[in-house]
């Protein structure tokens, strides 16, 4: 028999709360809904706490529950908005300034090399900047991006959830990435100067 302490405990669950809340807040953008979603996911996990072998299994499970809750919330929110309007949040010409008249990168806006993501990930400050950049995305654009990159849905699943076309979804994702890249470049990488290897 393996030791009893291998079972997940309420303390393990409590320790996850910060992570869960951070994850939910990033996507839902409002603290109250994030708290609610986390609360529900934790209650669901608590009722099955004895079935988990250790922290790793518990956290995988509770994150999966939370992701489902977030998809539900995002889906219900999208019902109250006209989907056709979403693509215009960041209009086609939003990024024209980055390119010259022949659609080549302008000298000042040429993307720089960002180095190894692992080295960036360990810097707590980076997460604050990422959140700031995500918060600056228009809401419907952020929703599409979150569903794709954080909730790990395929583009056609995102399109189906939000009742938009797949090509519309592709355009929104492209513009979200353009905007986030510029934001991270100016707010994080430029600020740090050439502190990369």
């Amino acid at each position: 028999m393996s030791d009893v302490s291998a079972n997940a405990s309420h303390e393990d669950l409590a320790r996850l709360r910060g992570d869960l809340l951070r994850f939910a807040t990033l996507q839902l953008r409002d603290h109250a809904s994030a708290e609610d979603a986390v609360q529900e996911a934790m209650l669901a996990a608590m009722s099955k706490i004895n079935e988990f072998r250790g922290q790793a299994q518990l956290s995988t499970w509770v994150f999966a529950i939370l992701k489902n809750k977030i998809v539900d919330i995002l889906r219900s929110r999208s019902r109250f908005r006209p989907a056709e309007g979403d693509v215009d949040e960041l209009p086609a010409d939003s990024f024209d300034g980055l390119f010259d008249e022949r659609d080549r990168w302008s000298a000042d806006d040429r993307p720089a090399f960002w180095g190894d993501p692992e080295a960036t990930l360990v810097q707590q400050q980076f997460w604050i900047v990422l959140k700031l950049c995500l918060d600056r995305l228009p809401p419907a654009t952020a929703r599409v991006f979150m569903m794709r990159e954080f909730l790990d849905l395929e583009p056609d699943e995102v399109a189906a959830e939000l009742a938009i076309s797949k090509s519309n979804c592709g355009v929104i994702l492209h513009r979200a990435r353009m905007a986030l890249r510029v934001c991270l470049q100016t707010r994080w990488f430029d600020e740090r100067g050439s502190r990369k290897c």
Binding site: D19, P117, F150, L180
Partner: peptide, 20 residues
């Protein structure tokens, strides 16, 4: 950069990698 962005988002969605 776009791959970098995807990588960090994936990481943020991975449980237990970050402190509060």
């Amino acid at each position: 950069n776009i791959r970098f962005l995807r990588y960090v988002c994936k990481d943020a969605a991975t449980p237990g990698r970050h402190i509060d």
